[in-house]
């Protein structure tokens, strides 16, 4: 009995004590601000990743060697080096090469996740394009469409159905990966949570809450991906 009472002490002190939770909730605005930065970086990063991924995915299916080689190189570089190094490169190395260049940390985050996930999306787009029968491209070019025109009007709209589920999965990964910004003081959700937790040692409640907020951003997308996948399979 006395042992049980002693254990109730975790409500008063320890990493998950009630006062720590109270402190977190009375400073909740810090996390909200961080979450907004994360959403901003994620949405602009996704836009960049989609643009890059589509362009490079189209290049990798091209009949010409040079764009194909460029696309291959891009994808292999970004897929086979850690995102963290890419972000550090932009953060540390670029200002040495161009001392007068000033890039806001948020922009570094957008470029980092945008270019990194652009490589993955390029592979998704390539697979989508290759899933469309050759006859479609032949029909289009036989009508006088250019390669890019055929892609734009004929191939990519059809490939869209196939690539939507994996694209949504990429969006989920991209949101989670914006957390690398924390390491370069990016003001994002992970950074906001970590610096708040560090100041007073409220790690337990803060990390749980930060994790929960990431989950709330990602889970609906993951559900959407699953729904889209079921729809594609049904069709």
């Amino acid at each position: 009995m006395s042992e049980l009472l002693a254990n109730i002490g975790f409500l008063q002190e320890g990493p998950f004590s009630v006062p720590r939770w109270e402190a977190l909730f009375s400073n909740f605005g810090v996390l909200v601000d961080g979450a907004l930065v994360t959403l901003l970086v994620a949405s602009l990063g996704l836009a960049l990743a989609l643009a890059l991924g589509t362009a490079i995915g189209v290049m990798s299916t091209s009949q010409w060697r040079v764009p194909r080689a460029f696309a291959r190189g891009y994808v292999e570089f970004f897929q086979n080096t850690p995102l963290l190094i890419q972000v550090f490169m932009i953060y540390n190395a670029l200002p040495i090469i161009y001392p007068r260049l000033f890039i806001p940390v948020i922009a570094i985050g957008i470029m980092g996740v945008g270019m990194y996930h652009g490589a993955y999306i390029a592979e998704v787009v390539r697979a989508g394009i290759q899933s469309i029968g050759r006859g479609q491209l032949e029909a289009a070019v036989s009508q006088g469409f250019s390669y890019v025109g055929a892609m734009r009007y004929i191939i990519i709209p059809q490939a869209m159905r196939v690539v939507l589920p994996p694209l949504t999965n990429q969006a989920v990964n991209l949101i989670k990966n914006t957390s690398v910004l924390a390491i370069i003081a990016g003001g994002d959700l992970m950074y906001a949570g970590d610096s708040f937790a560090g100041r007073f040692g409220h790690y337990g409640p803060t990390y749980i809450m930060v994790g929960l907020i990431y989950f709330l951003m990602c889970f609906p997308l993951a559900m959407l991906a699953r729904r889209l996948e079921e729809r594609t399979r049904a069709a």
Binding site: G135, E138, A139, V141, S142, Q143, G144, S146
Partner: peptide, 11 residues
């Protein structure tokens, strides 16, 4: 591409 506009193909 220009000439292909004049040459229609049925597959």
């Amino acid at each position: 591409a220009k000439v292909r506009q004049q040459v229609a193909m049925v597959f």
